[in-house]
Nucleic acid binder design. Structure first.
Lengths: 126, 126
DNA sequence: TATAGTGTAATAGTAAACTAATACACTAAT
DNA sequence: ATTAGTGTATTAGTTTACTATTACACTATA
């Protein structure tokens, strides 16, 4: 995995795992890969994985069972909240940043639409 | 100034200075505050200011004149590129992240519009 | 020419994230 | 009971961002 070196790796791993849950690669109540396996896959140290997982356990996203593994929570409501808050966090980031640059909400929507069109245009050339 | 502790301070200072230029607080060819003054205002060390400024000089946004101060470039084209790339960087971030979460471009625009409405609603209660 | 204001450089020390390595504790299955 | 697979904890060391401090170099001006 390629990390953004401006952001702590353990934080990006948290995001990665949430993402895998949201898109359904890790399902509710399912066991996720072992810490040593994740460390190999993501090419980071076990401690770094551990730190990310500990926070996700604390957030109620994962449950850890000693000797058995880490499991995605069965609490669907919690998972839904998680997805919603991640999306909202992203929107808040871009909204606040562009507001600071004196870009109006109307311009933001237009800029985003333009950007999407641009990306769609690029997709043709794949 | 309050910093996001997930991102290096010097990087956030770069963003802050670009922002002040874009919104017109620091104008082309104008002198920006002295490094020691910025350090006081932003409550960080001079070296941290220096690091941010050095990168902005390297980016062609500022010009440094020993014994006189740091000045915003007179190159309006460069400043325009800067603004454009910052906006695009923000849009790319949110686009990529939401795409990873299997949110379609159409949903993104709708989500952003909804979020804007929500923020406008909050504004009433200020 | 002396002085105040400026950018620049260098050194030392601190804190946090990360790595490396090892050991321990629990579970399940042979 | 042994063993393989798992989570957890600890210790030591590296790297990077940041701070603190001091010194130096240049500019403008009184």
């Amino acid at each position: 995995m390629d990390f953004d070196d401006r952001i702590p790796i353990y934080y990006q791993i948290k995001q990665y795992i949430c993402q895998e849950i949201i898109v359904g690669h890790f399902k509710p109540e399912d066991k996720i890969p072992a810490v040593r396996q994740l460390a190999l896959t993501l090419t980071v140290n076990v401690n770094t994985i551990q730190r990310a997982l500990a926070e996700l356990v604390n957030d109620g996203i994962l449950e850890s069972k000693r000797g058995r593994g880490n499991f995605v929570t069965a609490d669907l409501k919690r998972l839904n909240e998680m997805k919603h808050s991640i999306v909202e966090e992203q929107l808040a980031l871009v909204y606040d940043r562009l507001t600071d640059l004196q870009i109006t909400p109307e311009e933001m929507v237009r800029d985003l639409t333009d950007y999407i069109d641009k990306r769609k245009g690029e997709k043709q050339n794949d």
